[in-house]
Design a protein around this nucleic acid. Sequence first.
DNA 1: AAGAAACTGTTGGTTTTCGAACAGTTAACG
DNA 2: CGTTAACTGTTCGAAAACCAACAGTTTCTT
Lengths: 187, 187
Amino acid sequence: MTKDVRKLKTERDIQRAMLQLLTTKNFRQMTVADICQASLTSRSTFYAHYLDKYDLLDQLVAKYQLIFTQKVHLRFEQMIAGEIDALVKGLLADMADNREAIRILFTVHEPAADLEAGFHDQLLAEWQRFIQEKSPTMTAPAELIAAMGTNVQMTVIEWALTHGDTSIDVVADAVNTIRGAVLRQIN
Amino acid sequence: MTKDVRKLKTERDIQRAMLQLLTTKNFRQMTVADICQASLTSRSTFYAHYLDKYDLLDQLVAKYQLIFTQKVHLRFEQMIAGEIDALVKGLLADMADNREAIRILFTVHEPAADLEAGFHDQLLAEWQRFIQEKSPTMTAPAELIAAMGTNVQMTVIEWALTHGDTSIDVVADAVNTIRGAVLRQIN
DNA sequence: AAGAAACTGTTGGTTTTCGAACAGTTAACG
DNA sequence: CGTTAACTGTTCGAAAACCAACAGTTTCTT
């Protein structure tokens, strides 16, 4: 039923290798042979696990998209109601182990596999749902406010991914002000 | 002729796992099952590579001892003649990839596998050879001065292993003074 | 445009790893 | 003391990974 340990290990090695390679060269110019060389796996084994490098990227993106999906839904309420410190620190804590991987994948923008876009869409859906519940009829266009809130959050997330969780305090005040302005459009 | 990649990978995984476990528990209370669990290898595979955990430790120690042996002989002359900055920075550069592993192994003191003792003996032999060449007849006992020089170097090496190469400048003056005093006994 | 070089995706035979089981030893515990 | 429990070291069939070779495609060079 459960997967063979060897499969888990090779998939781990291959995924790590791809992430590591993405820091050097971009996805397009990366070959399957490169990935195999970096992960110490044979090409035949690679193709036993993935259709091609696009499939590998898909699965990587899907993996972190899933983690994000699970976390975001739980934290969304407090993300917009609470202080910005709690928001970012909570998210970073959830993703501590994966921060570097997510940061790398955010640089890849393939039509069928775009983690940054995926995060964005996910947040946007949450905002639309939130606005619909809180105030179905509001003066400002709901779509605009949802997009605004989403983009503010994405900005903070990306900032935190690259700068780490220690330097949040520097920007907390500024972001809190903006967040408050967005929320006032809804209430 | 050359080893199968799978063998290299499992040995790498097992060795990494043991080093990682050594940061948690000490060597005596560590079991083969622990190592296998941490490295995601089966016990039967472990025993296909090593006789037991002592054999594994032996090979780990021997590996880093060999690296040290190769580097020390090349750098010994400049280690005692040059400035202490050059000494430590040179050594650390040589061992940059292995610093963490060596630091961990320095905490293990098994009768048959003691990296710290091995480094010490290696340096002592270099000092004895050096004194014999430079001044075969000297007033102070050669053994004492060799031991002194060795211990000074070991102190610096261990300090650098734990504190990193950035903070060498802090102690450079102090160590240079001591090193000068030791060398004056020979010349 | 033609040939070379590199990359893709697949196959089959060989080697390695896995997992479960086993008896024998050591450590823990009431 | 005796009885569990845990650890050691070994065996063997099944599963997975390896490598080399292959034809077909794309990319580079001249």
